[in-house]
Protein backbone atom coordinates (compact mmCIF):
# COMPACT_ATOMS: atom_id res chain seq x y z
CA UNK A 1 0.00 0.00 0.00
CA UNK A 2 2.74 2.47 0.95
CA UNK A 3 5.95 3.26 -0.94
CA UNK A 4 9.34 2.31 0.54
CA UNK A 5 9.95 6.00 1.25
CA UNK A 6 6.74 6.29 3.25
CA UNK A 7 7.59 3.16 5.19
CA UNK A 8 11.09 4.45 5.84
CA UNK A 9 9.76 7.74 7.22
CA UNK A 10 7.17 5.89 9.25
CA UNK A 11 9.70 3.50 10.74
CA UNK A 12 12.40 6.12 11.29
CA UNK A 13 10.64 9.45 11.46
CA UNK A 14 13.00 12.43 11.24
CA UNK A 15 12.77 15.29 13.69
CA UNK A 16 10.26 13.84 16.13
CA UNK A 17 9.90 15.69 19.39
CA UNK A 18 9.46 19.10 20.87
CA UNK A 19 11.53 22.28 20.92
CA UNK A 20 11.58 23.85 24.38
CA UNK A 21 12.22 27.40 23.20
CA UNK A 22 10.32 27.24 19.94
CA UNK A 23 9.15 30.59 18.60
CA UNK A 24 6.70 29.07 16.12
CA UNK A 25 4.22 26.35 17.01
CA UNK A 26 1.34 25.17 14.86
CA UNK A 27 -1.23 22.47 15.46
CA UNK A 28 -3.76 21.27 12.88
CA UNK A 29 -6.33 18.51 12.70
CA UNK A 30 -8.34 17.11 15.55
CA UNK A 31 -8.63 13.89 17.50
CA UNK A 32 -12.16 13.22 16.29
CA UNK A 33 -10.96 12.93 12.71
CA UNK A 34 -8.05 10.77 13.74
CA UNK A 35 -5.14 13.01 12.90
CA UNK A 36 -3.36 15.83 14.64
CA UNK A 37 -0.03 17.36 13.62
CA UNK A 38 1.94 19.69 15.79
CA UNK A 39 5.02 21.45 14.44
CA UNK A 40 7.59 23.30 16.50
CA UNK A 41 10.11 25.66 14.85
CA UNK A 42 13.03 27.67 16.02
CA UNK A 43 13.31 30.58 13.60
CA UNK A 44 16.29 32.93 13.64
CA UNK A 45 16.77 35.76 11.13
CA UNK A 46 13.86 34.38 9.14
CA UNK A 47 15.64 31.04 8.80
CA UNK A 48 14.18 27.84 10.18
CA UNK A 49 17.08 26.66 12.28
CA UNK A 50 15.33 23.75 13.87
CA UNK A 51 12.04 21.95 13.42
CA UNK A 52 10.34 19.10 15.27
CA UNK A 53 6.96 17.45 15.10
CA UNK A 54 4.50 15.31 16.97
CA UNK A 55 1.74 13.48 15.18
CA UNK A 56 -1.30 11.48 16.18
CA UNK A 57 -2.46 9.65 13.09
CA UNK A 58 -1.99 6.91 10.56
CA UNK A 59 1.24 5.80 8.91
CA UNK A 60 0.87 8.37 6.15
CA UNK A 61 0.32 11.14 8.69
CA UNK A 62 3.58 10.28 10.43
CA UNK A 63 5.50 9.96 7.16
CA UNK A 64 4.21 13.24 5.70
CA UNK A 65 5.03 15.10 8.92
CA UNK A 66 8.51 13.65 8.89
CA UNK A 67 9.09 14.50 5.24
CA UNK A 68 7.66 17.99 5.64
CA UNK A 69 10.10 18.75 8.45
CA UNK A 70 12.98 17.57 6.26
CA UNK A 71 11.88 19.80 3.39
CA UNK A 72 11.57 22.83 5.64
CA UNK A 73 14.68 22.47 7.78
CA UNK A 74 17.19 25.24 7.05
CA UNK A 75 14.90 27.10 4.66
CA UNK A 76 13.84 30.71 4.95
CA UNK A 77 10.30 31.36 6.09
CA UNK A 78 9.33 32.52 2.59
CA UNK A 79 10.79 29.38 1.05
CA UNK A 80 8.97 27.20 3.55
CA UNK A 81 5.70 28.85 2.61
CA UNK A 82 6.12 27.70 -0.99
CA UNK A 83 6.19 24.04 -0.02
CA UNK A 84 2.97 22.43 -1.14
CA UNK A 85 1.35 19.17 -0.17
CA UNK A 86 2.20 17.93 -3.67
CA UNK A 87 5.88 18.46 -3.01
CA UNK A 88 5.57 16.38 0.15
CA UNK A 89 3.77 13.61 -1.74
CA UNK A 90 6.36 13.62 -4.52
CA UNK A 91 9.21 13.47 -2.06
CA UNK A 92 7.58 10.38 -0.56
CA UNK A 93 7.20 8.70 -3.99
CA UNK A 94 3.45 9.05 -3.77
CA UNK A 95 0.62 8.29 -1.36
CA UNK A 96 -2.55 6.22 -1.76
CA UNK A 97 -5.43 8.52 -2.83
CA UNK A 98 -7.24 8.04 0.49
CA UNK A 99 -4.17 9.37 2.29
CA UNK A 100 -3.60 12.55 0.29
CA UNK A 101 -5.32 14.59 2.99
CA UNK A 102 -2.40 13.74 5.30
CA UNK A 103 -0.09 15.68 3.01
CA UNK A 104 -2.51 18.61 3.08
CA UNK A 105 -2.37 18.46 6.84
CA UNK A 106 1.44 18.57 6.73
CA UNK A 107 1.40 21.67 4.55
CA UNK A 108 -1.15 23.27 6.84
CA UNK A 109 0.88 22.44 9.93
CA UNK A 110 3.91 24.26 8.53
CA UNK A 111 1.77 27.25 7.63
CA UNK A 112 0.10 27.25 11.03
CA UNK A 113 3.51 27.37 12.70
CA UNK A 114 4.66 30.24 10.50
CA UNK A 115 1.40 32.05 11.15
CA UNK A 116 2.17 31.73 14.84
CA UNK A 117 5.63 33.17 14.19
CA UNK A 118 4.12 36.12 12.30
CA UNK A 119 1.72 36.74 15.13
CA UNK A 120 4.48 36.68 17.70
CA UNK A 121 6.73 38.99 15.65
CA UNK A 122 3.96 41.35 14.60
CA UNK A 123 4.16 40.60 10.88
CA UNK A 124 0.88 41.22 9.10
CA UNK A 125 0.79 38.78 6.23
CA UNK A 126 -1.96 36.44 5.16
CA UNK A 127 -1.00 32.88 4.38
CA UNK A 128 -2.77 31.09 1.56
CA UNK A 129 -3.58 27.42 1.83
CA UNK A 130 -3.34 25.25 -1.27
CA UNK A 131 -5.10 22.26 0.19
CA UNK A 132 -8.71 21.30 0.04
CA UNK A 133 -9.89 20.62 3.52
CA UNK A 134 -13.15 18.95 2.70
CA UNK A 135 -12.48 15.90 4.78
CA UNK A 136 -12.49 17.62 8.09
CA UNK A 137 -12.87 21.05 9.64
CA UNK A 138 -9.24 21.79 10.23
CA UNK A 139 -8.80 25.08 11.93
CA UNK A 140 -6.31 27.31 10.24
Amino acid sequence: MYSDKVMDHFKNPRNVGEIEDANAVGTVGNAKCGDIMKIYMKIEDDIIKDIKFKTFGCGAAVATSSMATELVMGKTVDEALTITNKAVVEALDGLPPAKLHCSVLAEEAIKAAIEDYYKKTGVEKKIECSGDCAHCNHEH
Partner: peptide, 8 residues
Protein backbone atom coordinates in the same frame (compact mmCIF):
# COMPACT_ATOMS: atom_id res chain seq x y z
CA UNK B 1 2.50 7.72 22.31
CA UNK B 2 5.85 9.46 22.58
CA UNK B 3 5.16 10.75 19.09
CA UNK B 4 1.59 11.82 19.87
CA UNK B 5 0.66 15.44 20.64
CA UNK B 6 -2.34 14.12 22.61
CA UNK B 7 -0.09 12.13 24.91
CA UNK B 8 2.10 15.20 25.30
Amino acid sequence: RDMSPLYE
